[in-house]
Design a protein around this nucleic acid. Structure first.
Lengths: 205, 205
DNA sequence: TGCAACTTTGCAGATTCGGCAAGATCCGCT
DNA sequence: AGCGGATCTTGCCGAATCTGCAAAGTTGCA
């Protein structure tokens, strides 16, 4: 994973530091009260370097979300071919979320933090950014699904449709997890949601 | 629909003109060869006025897409309660797309135009914007679905999940329609996709 | 150790964003 | 008609962002 030289490691660390600083400051102060200058300072680099890593504030904030989404795509690629598609997707998502946020590492999230997170994801300027990150992952998921099912991601509707639906499901799960009054288990949520999808989303009784 | 005064009509017209100019120029020259100044000039207003209508170039370009998505949500609201959810959604989508782009009004789209469109939707800077527009519509769709099924869009997963899936389906259909070698009927595409969803997205044989 | 490749950084120019206040236009009511 | 208030447009301006470019500092490898 990190077998490469010092150079790459440092680069990766800078990227994480920048993204992390961007998130933390945004959660604390709110989106428009954070300038790129602040983020760069927090990560100990110049503003110009920030631009070398991310094209915008939003990109930096969403970077971790982006990485996780791609991790899920990668996890899906590793699932055995014989597995039914929905099982594979569910397990891959579980694996992706299991990586855990560096925030959540250890103690449960604090009230004020969750509050800030909610504000952050509600920020209109970031909505598009989150979606874009999801879209990038969907492209990869579509490729994997195409492989598994012997379809063509460029021509057949199926793989892209599945990928899009998976993305929507992940969004919904994340949203629910964040908005629920009482914290729910991610696993429970994922199994519930993908179960419904596999059943054709019947109307709840 | 347009019963309101001259003021509102003009405002609406300006909005359309700006969005339309933004799209046309982008298709012709490419995204970064269009400045807000150009768009404003094309629509006959000042750059400052542009900012009063849209927060960014991307927003202006996506505005029509945005309107159509909301039209679908509105159409869904009008469908009879007794109708099965997937039937209602399919019909609503059909109605929304039937409005037709002002481009397509009349003659079939020209080759160069479609080509430009493809480039435009492929523009990374716009991806997020399109998705954001879709997300806004999804929120409305979730509300309608919640009403129909007696669920709570704020607490239950179901309505948001359905809305997200519908959004994904519309994206996929649009994509397919735009990318297909030979133009396919929108109706055919929509019925195919929603049919698969209702069946739980079984793997194609 | 020494050179090639890569990264960071400061700087400058182009562009965008948003507040503010003046002027123009429209709406509703008398 | 005519008037007052509400709304829209616009120019001006400063803050912030984005990018290319070249110099300076690091790292990888023979």
């Amino acid at each position: 994973m990190d077998a490469k030289g010092l150079r790459e490691r440092k680069k990766h660390e800078t990227r994480i530091a920048l993204s992390w600083a961007a998130i933390r400051l945004t959660v604390e102060r709110g989106y428009d009260n954070v300038r790129i200058e602040d983020i760069a300072a927090e990560a100990g680099v110049s503003t110009r370097t920030f631009s070398n890593y991310f094209g915008s504030k939003g990109e930096a904030i969403v970077a971790r979300h982006h990485d996780r989404a791609r991790a899920i795509a990668e996890a899906l690629r590793q699932r055995p071919e014989s597995e039914p598609i929905w099982t594979a997707v569910t397990e891959a998502a579980l694996a992706g979320f299991a990586l855990g946020e560096p925030v959540t590492e250890g103690r449960p999230p604090e009230q004020s933090w969750v509050e800030g997170l909610r504000l952050m994801v509600a920020e209109p300027a970031l909505q598009g950014e989150f979606q874009k990150a999801g879209a990038a992952a969907e492209t990869e998921i579509a490729l994997v699904v195409a492989e598994r099912t012997g379809t063509d991601a460029a021509k057949d509707v199926y793989p892209r449709l599945v990928a899009g639906v998976v993305g929507a499901a992940l969004n919904t799960v994340t949203q629910q997890w964040l908005l629920a009054d009482r914290p729910q288990s991610m696993e429970e949520l994922l199994r519930d949601v993908f179960g419904r999808l596999a059943a054709g989303l019947p109307e709840p009784r």
